[in-house]
Computed example of a mutant assay.
Amino acid sequence: MFSRLAILLYAIVSYAVFTVSFLYALGFVGNYVVPKSIDLPFDVGSPSNVTEAIVVNLLLMSLFAIQHSVMARPAFKRWWTRVLPVACERSTYVLLSSLILLLLFWQWRPIPAPIWQTAGIVAWLLTGIHWLGWLIAFASTHMIDHFDLFGLRQALAELRGTEPQGPSFKTPLLYKIVRHPIMLGFLLAFWATPEMTAGHLLFALANTAYILAALQFEERDLIAEFGESYRQYRRRVPMLLPRLFARTRTRDPNTTRSIGAPR
Rank of each mutant, 00 (worst) to 15 (best):
P164Y: 11
Q165F: 07
Q165I: 09
P167D: 06
P167A: 14
F169E: 10
K170R: 13
K170F: 05
P172Q: 14
L173Y: 10
L174I: 06
L174E: 01
Y175E: 07
K176E: 10
K176C: 04
I177P: 00
H180F: 07
H180R: 01
H180I: 02
M183W: 01
M183K: 09
L184D: 00
L184S: 09
G185Q: 03
G185C: 09
G185W: 04
F186W: 14
F186H: 09
L187A: 08
L187E: 06
L188Y: 00
L188M: 10
A189F: 12
F190C: 07
F190D: 07
T193P: 01
T193F: 01
E195A: 15
M196V: 03
A198V: 15
L202K: 12
L202N: 01
L202H: 06
L202Y: 02
L202D: 00
F203A: 03
F203G: 00
A204C: 01
A206K: 01
A206D: 02
A206M: 11
N207D: 04
N207S: 12
A209I: 13
Y210F: 14
Y210D: 01
Y210G: 08
L212Q: 07
L212M: 09
A213G: 02
A214C: 11
A214Q: 10
L215Q: 02
Q216R: 13
F217C: 02
E219V: 02
E219D: 14
D221M: 03
D221R: 01
I223A: 01
A224G: 05
E225S: 14
E225A: 15
E225V: 12
G227T: 11
E228N: 08
Q232R: 15
Q232D: 13
Y233D: 05
R235C: 05
R235M: 13
V237Q: 08
V237C: 07
V237Y: 08
M239C: 12
M239R: 15
M239D: 06
L240C: 10
L241V: 15
L241A: 10
L241Q: 07
P242K: 08
R243Q: 07
R243A: 09
R243T: 03
L244N: 09
F245I: 11
A246R: 14
A246K: 13
A246T: 11
T248N: 11
R249V: 11
R249M: 04
R251Y: 15
R251D: 15
R251P: 03
N254S: 15
N254L: 14
